[in-house]
């Protein structure tokens, strides 16, 4: 990762906004570019639209007010998770990235908090995600907020790396619901 000039700006100067469809032309290319940087496999435009069109309200952008450039982004969804009886309302953090020069200032933390707050307001039972086992910054960030590792997924990514499933429970589990170990939707999302 290019770590040329490290910004000493405070994230407080940044503007945090919720994504809206009208922002697509202005920001979608930048969102894709930012996220692709850290991915071995690119996502097609349909993956972005799949999330943004249906759950734009769970996507947040961090913007540098000086030049309106994109500094960070979080993309999520929130859906009933059917393998449970009764079904739970499960939030899923699909993508998160911050420009490398802005890292370490709490930008990602702010974005994740905004997304969780928004999911909570919509009555989510839990929030889940996967992260590469080698991605220490991401794991620390989520674990600091209250996520726990629930399972390890062997060779989950195409590059051969394993992942952890992280879970944040927002409401007590129904004691009668069976253990959630069936194939999760996220399992197909590699």
């Amino acid at each position: 990762m290019e770590q040329t000039s490290h910004h000493d700006r405070l994230p407080r100067e940044l503007k945090y906004i919720q994504y809206e469809h009208r922002l697509e032309t202005q920001y979608l290319p930048a969102i894709r570019a930012l996220i692709s940087k850290d991915l071995s496999e690119p996502y097609s435009i349909y993956v972005y639209r799949y999330f943004l069109y249906q759950w734009g309200h769970l996507c947040y952008l961090a913007i540098d007010p000086n030049d309106s450039s994109l500094v960070g982004v979080i993309i999520c969804k929130l859906e009933a998770h059917a393998s449970h009886s009764p079904p739970t309302l499960r939030g899923y953090i699909a993508m998160l990235a911050v420009q490398s020069t802005y890292r370490g200032h709490g930008v990602a933390t702010t974005l994740v908090k905004m997304a969780i707050d928004s999911m909570k307001a919509r009555n989510a039972d839990e929030v889940v995600l996967e992260t590469e086992e080698t991605n220490i910054p991401a794991m620390r960030l989520y674990e600091r907020l209250g996520f726990l590792r629930s399972k390890k997924l062997h060779r989950y990514y195409l590059n051969g790396n394993s992942a952890y499933r992280l879970v944040l429970l927002l409401k007590p589990v129904d004691p009668d619901s069976a253990a959630d170990l069936a194939l999760d939707e996220a399992d197909i999302y590699r």
């Binding site: 209250g146 429970l169 007590p172």
Partner: peptide
């Protein structure tokens, strides 16, 4: 322990012990 503003000890116990809950 980390601050964990979004979680409680009890909720995390629920997550952790889910396989044994039934």
């Amino acid at each position: 322990p980390p601050p964990r503003p979004y979680s409680t000890d009890e909720l995390r116990y629920d997550v952790r012990m889910k396989p044994f809950g039934t």
